[in-house]
């Protein structure tokens, strides 16, 4: 009896595991196409295999160079990654979505990306099109903001 139940359970598990595979879906991430290739022979700014493994090293290195020394080469710049790997269509996926280039793989690898807490997750051209970047209400009206009336420096 117990044996019989176990067999059914096992069978169920096997079937369950087989379903996604047989439905044609793979567990591998669906990585969106980039906008361009660096050259006919090379896809990304470094060989793709290398980029898959070491992109974070390149970006990290570039990050310090850019912030502290003002070195703004494009090859390892995060902004350029996004410009090329994320579409500038208005409905382009955000990093919160698995369809976003970075997140497609990061979800698969279960590695959290922090970059986009500060960095734009969509290309420069998208930012230029958006009227209200930043997520808050536009400060366009700041000219009309009333100056805080002052009790003076009431101290004197």
């Amino acid at each position: 009896m117990i044996n019989y139940g176990l067999k059914i359970l096992l069978l169920g598990l096997l079937l369950g595991a087989a379903v996604p595979a047989s439905a044609g879906g793979s567990l591998l991430p669906v990585i969106p196409e980039a906008q361009a290739r660096v050259s006919e022979t090379q896809g990304c700014v470094e060989p793709v295999d290398d980029m898959r493994k070491n992109h974070m090293e390149y970006i990290l290195h570039q990050r310090d160079k850019t912030v502290h020394e003002g070195i703004r080469t494009q090859q390892h710049s995060l902004v350029e990654c996004i410009n090329c790997h994320v579409s500038d269509a208005p409905d382009a996926p955000r990093v919160s979505s698995e369809e976003h280039f970075c997140n497609s793989c990061h979800t698969y690898a279960a590695v959290k990306v922090d970059c986009f807490q500060c960095h734009a997750d969509r290309p420069v051209s998208t930012a230029q099109k958006l009227s209200q970047p930043g997520g808050g209400e536009s400060l366009l009206l700041s000219a009309d903001r009333q100056p805080v009336s002052v009790t003076g420096d009431q101290a004197q």
Binding site: V79, I82, Q117, C118, V124, A127, G136
Partner: peptide, 17 residues
């Protein structure tokens, strides 16, 4: 103080800094 999104790509800014 707030969570931001759609920052200007050349001017990254984020909560807590």
């Amino acid at each position: 103080h707030e969570t931001l999104q759609d920052q200007m790509p050349y001017a990254p800014r984020g909560k807590g800094t």
